[in-house]
Design a protein around this nucleic acid. Structure first.
Length: 455
RNA sequence: GUGCCUCUAGCUCAAUGGCAGAGCGCUGGUCUGUGGAACCAGUGGUUGCGGGUUCGAAUCCCGUGAGGCACCCCA
């Protein structure tokens, strides 16, 4: 087709801003990570669900605050309905629970892994379509549910070998108490949270300036800074907070909940190096009402790997009656970024485990018989489909794709009733009896990767 | 959404406003019973895209698309 002809029938093969194609190798790594997450989620008793990518705009509107609203994909469908692409998996969950209330067993524990959409300006680790891996428990106020979310995160991230993650913990009501102490009206509280949240980045002086700029008085700002900078073991820090904010019932409630949360974490055997109380942590989303978490990693400067929190009021927006819930999401692309940058996981470069070579035009029957036998025996096997098939080319094909085993069955092997198996990594060759082929192939595969031993 | 930077072959990068190049890769061969190595030969481009300035633009200007950095926000 000429360039002109092509221009008439299609545009350049470009994807939309902030959206990406994935090559097989990238998909294999992504799948590997998702599979490991699923295994951890299920080990804790979370069950899979799915919901549509597209929701009525009304379902999504008014849940994320002004900032979130601006980033939502929103348009009319063919029937003139106002619709939106889901912005996260939490609001769809709230809608899901309200819709299927009578079909669910509570407390309801679910995980949900899939793409969400935000019309942001893309950057590294920040895309317009990205996958979230959510874990939530609906229908209980118990801090044990929150503790489980934190623990499931720690284990999920450990399962993909991410080292040194520290999940930061804070409580939304503690932030509210701080804001009201600072004399900031409720509708301005969010700006105070954000100022506080920047502590790590701009330092106490920067936060002080920002607070003053938002009309906080000098002594109030000092009070806030004094609290927010408390560091150390959760127990003593919470005791200190309890003392300083003694008169504030909201703060006392938050402290009591956090104490309970940390107690459960201890009982569950969570590694204390993997979580920390951070009174400066904010979390921007509007719907949080209780404990909030954020998983941060230092090494690739990629922001947070995930955010979580309790949102006891969100489901009530669909039901008129509150159902408590807690949970959070890990960002798949950020996890992938860390795993790639630090080379933490070695995903296979191809799914194929064995290539059966074709010796000549007369031996198709032999090759196809072998490949079918391997497939029936649970081995991912292919026969070379190219038209020019000298052995050199066939072995090269296997080498480039990273297929570990290449099988030969030419006249010599036929006469002897054997098959030659070549291990590409070492170049080692084995002549095995035709009858033992599948078991020998599986033995060799298991020897190079213990995880593929079963099935 | 705002500001700044970048975009040249499949990849990494060269080229004072004056002939668009190298390395790697890829293709073929040495080599039709076996991949990587070596050697030989070949293949590579609307310089992101569209306009403008100029005798002449990869280079300067405007617009636009994409990527990146900071802000904002967030997974």
């Amino acid at each position: 087709m000429t360039r002109e002809a092509r221009a008439e029938t299609s545009r350049s093969p470009q994807v939309l801003r902030g959206m990406r194609d994935f090559l097989p190798q990238q998909m294999l790594l992504r799948q590997e990570i998702v599979d490991r997450f699923k295994a951890v989620f299920e080990r804790f008793g979370f069950e899979p669900i799915d919901t549509p990518l597209l929701e009525y705009y009304e379902v999504l509107a008014g849940k994320y605050g002004e900032e979130g609203e601006k980033l939502m994909y929103h348009f009319q469908d063919h029937g003139g309905r106002e619709v939106g692409l889901r912005y996260d998996l939490t609001v769809p969950l709230a809608r899901f629970v309200a819709a299927h209330r009578h079909e669910l067993t509570f407390p309801f524990k679910r995980y949900h892994i899939g793409p969400v959409f935000r019309a942001e300006r893309p950057q590294r680790g920040r895309y317009r379509q990205f996958w979230q891996c959510d874990v939530d428990t609906v229908g209980t106020r118990s801090m044990l549910a929150d503790a489980e979310v934190l623990l499931v995160w720690i284990e999920a991230l450990a399962s993909v070998n991410i080292p040194n993650v520290v999940v930061q913990v804070n409580h939304r009501k503690l932030l509210q108490a701080l804001a009201s102490h600072a004399g900031v009206p409720a509708e301005q509280a969010l700006t105070v949270y954000r100022a506080i949240d920047k502590l790590e980045k701009i330092g106490p002086e920067g936060v002080r300036e920002e607070l003053l700029r938002h009309g906080v008085s000098e002594p109030a700002a000092q009070g806030v800074l004094g609290l927010v900078q408390l560091r150390g073991e959760p127990g003593p820090v919470l005791a200190e907070v309890r003392q300083r904010l003694a008169g504030d019932p909201q703060a006392m409630e938050a402290v009591a909940e956090l104490e309970e949360l940390f107690r459960y974490l201890g009982l569950l055997g969570a590694d204390p190096r993997r979580y920390a109380l951070n009174l400066a942590l904010a979390r921007g989303l509007d719907y949080y009402t209780g404990p909030v978490f954020e998983a941060v990693v230092e090494e690739p400067a990629i922001g947070s790997l995930g955010g979580a929190g309790r949102y006891d009021g969100l489901i009530g927006m669909f039901l008129g009656e509150d159902i408590p819930a807690t949970g959070g999401s890990l960002g798949l692309e950020r996890v992938v970024e860390v795993v790639q940058e630090l080379q933490l996981l070695h995903a296979p470069s191809t799914v194929t485990q064995a290539l059966v070579t074709v010796f000549d035009d007369e031996s198709w029957g032999v090759a196809l018989g072998l490949v079918q036998e391997l497939r029936a025996g649970g081995v991912a096997a292919e026969v070379y489909l190219g038209e020019r098939r000298d052995l050199r080319r066939q072995v090269q094909y296997a080498d480039r794709k990273g297929v570990p085993l290449v099988l030969f069955c030419g006249p010599d092997e036929l006469a002897a009733g054997v098959v030659t198996i070549r291990e590409l990594a070492s170049g080692e060759q084995h002549r095995v009896a035709r009858a033992d082929l599948v078991s020998e192939v599986r033995r060799l595969l298991a020897a190079r990767d213990p995880r593929s031993a079963s099935t």
